[in-house]
Computed example of a mutant assay.
Amino acid sequence: MSTAVGPGGTDKAGIRRELLAARRQLTPDQASATGHSLARRALELPELAGAGTVAAYVSVGTEPGTRSLLDALRERGTRVLLPLLLPDNDLDWAVYEGAGRLMNVGHPGKMRLLEPSATPLGPQAVVEADAVLLPGLAVDGRGMRLGRGGGSYDRVLARLERAGAHPALVVLLYDHEVVARVPQEPHDHPVHAVVTPSGVRRFAP
């Protein structure tokens, strides 16, 4: 784990820029290989092994790969929910029916995403999940996650809290993205575990 506060000091925007720049140096093949390692590690988690429903996401570009994990969960019989980005940055959800049923969707002013083509279930569907895989750019030693800054998953976490739902919260990252500390705001929620190619780290509640 890095001993620095974060690669850019205490400013969230600066940390995000540097972490995203580091990811851009990776090739799609490197990201894909990382995805296979992450899938092996994540599938060993009891929180995923015992989950009937997992809310996840489809990695794009050089994000730590999730494709192998999504297929492995589906083959295991787990119901996998994937997000659909709404115009206000909130997330709807639909069931993952395989890679061939993903749509390449462009959102004005945002990166293109791969989204499920199944019938949308509504934003509230995420409260049915036993585990939620959260995208992120870094996690620190307290389990605090640094996201991309769009706020979509802040809404998801707030929705879970309002519903009294307590799924396992898991982030998939590259090894160097587990840092000593990231800036924290009042609405930030700690996660339960981070999975990297070299292993799993859990955080106390």
Results as ranks from 00 to 15, higher is better:
residue 128 E to C: 04
residue 112 R to E: 12
residue 19 L to I: 15
residue 165 A to R: 10
residue 53 T to D: 05
residue 6 G to I: 15
residue 143 G to I: 08
residue 156 V to A: 04
residue 190 P to F: 01
residue 72 A to V: 07
residue 29 D to Y: 00
residue 54 V to P: 12
residue 182 V to R: 00
residue 129 A to G: 07
residue 125 A to H: 08
residue 56 A to E: 12
residue 5 V to K: 00
residue 82 L to V: 05
residue 118 A to M: 12
residue 154 D to N: 08
residue 64 P to C: 14
residue 9 G to W: 04
residue 205 P to V: 12
residue 21 A to T: 13
residue 183 P to R: 09
residue 21 A to L: 13
residue 3 T to S: 14
residue 197 P to G: 05
residue 46 P to H: 09
residue 204 A to V: 14
residue 76 R to W: 06
residue 34 T to E: 06
residue 129 A to Y: 06
residue 83 P to R: 04
residue 201 R to K: 13
residue 76 R to E: 13
residue 113 L to E: 12
residue 132 V to R: 01
residue 103 M to N: 05
residue 106 G to Y: 00
residue 36 H to R: 15
residue 122 G to I: 11
residue 20 L to I: 15
residue 65 G to W: 02
residue 100 G to F: 00
residue 189 H to C: 09
residue 167 P to H: 11
residue 41 R to M: 11
residue 104 N to Y: 03
residue 205 P to C: 05
residue 95 V to G: 08
residue 44 E to Y: 01
residue 148 R to C: 10
residue 137 L to S: 09
residue 129 A to F: 05
residue 46 P to I: 06
residue 108 P to Q: 10
residue 77 G to S: 10
residue 30 Q to D: 13
residue 148 R to M: 14
residue 179 V to C: 10
residue 138 A to R: 09
residue 140 D to S: 10
residue 22 A to W: 15
residue 187 H to D: 06
residue 42 A to F: 05
residue 66 T to S: 11
residue 113 L to W: 03
residue 193 A to D: 04
residue 133 L to G: 08
residue 131 A to N: 09
residue 3 T to P: 00
residue 166 H to R: 15
residue 141 G to I: 03
residue 6 G to H: 12
residue 51 A to N: 11
residue 144 M to S: 14
residue 116 P to F: 03
residue 152 S to L: 00
residue 78 T to P: 01
residue 44 E to C: 12
residue 93 W to C: 05
residue 81 L to Y: 14
residue 22 A to I: 08
residue 144 M to V: 13
residue 152 S to G: 11
residue 68 S to I: 02
residue 14 G to E: 14
residue 137 L to M: 04
residue 189 H to Q: 14
residue 105 V to N: 07
residue 103 M to A: 15
residue 124 Q to F: 03
residue 27 T to Q: 04
